[in-house]
Amino acid sequence: MAKTKAKGDESWGKLIRDIVVILLLVLGIHSCIAKPFYIPSDSMMPALRNGDRLIVSKYPYGWSYSSVSFHLAPKVEGRLFGKLPERGDIVVLEHPVTRIDYIKRVIGLPGDTIQLRGGELSINGKPVKREVQPMLAIPVDLNTPGPDSSLFRFVTRDASGKEMLELPIVRETLPGGATFDTIDMGPGYSTDDYGPITVPADHVFLMGDNRDGSADSRVGTNQKGLGGPVPFDAIAGRAEIISFSTDGTAEWYNPLSWFSALRSGRAGTDLRPARQGN
Rank of each mutant, 00 (worst) to 15 (best):
L27K: 05
P134E: 10
G13T: 04
M44G: 06
L84W: 11
M45A: 15
K126R: 15
I55T: 11
T179K: 06
T269G: 02
L121R: 02
G237C: 00
E86P: 02
R105S: 02
A261H: 10
D158L: 05
I197S: 05
Q276P: 02
L151W: 01
V204S: 13
S264V: 04
N254Q: 14
W63A: 05
Y65V: 12
L93A: 12
T191R: 03
W63F: 13
D247K: 00
N222G: 02
I33F: 15
G108E: 08
G161I: 05
S41D: 12
D212K: 08
C32S: 13
L25S: 14
D42A: 09
D233R: 15
N143A: 05
I29R: 10
I39G: 09
L80P: 07
A34L: 09
P134I: 05
P231D: 00
D101C: 00
R153T: 11
E10M: 13
S214H: 12
P187W: 07
D112C: 03
D270I: 11
L25C: 15
I39Y: 10
L24S: 15
A250Y: 10
T182W: 01
L109D: 07
L121S: 07
F152T: 14
P196D: 05
M185W: 00
D9C: 06
S257K: 11
R130Q: 14
R272W: 00
P74Y: 06
P273Y: 03
D89P: 09
I242H: 01
T144Q: 09
R87I: 10
E131T: 14
T179H: 02
A201P: 00
T179A: 11
S149N: 04
G277I: 07
M45F: 13
K104G: 02
Y65F: 15
H95K: 07
P74L: 07
L25W: 08
L80A: 15
T191L: 01
F259Y: 13
V106S: 06
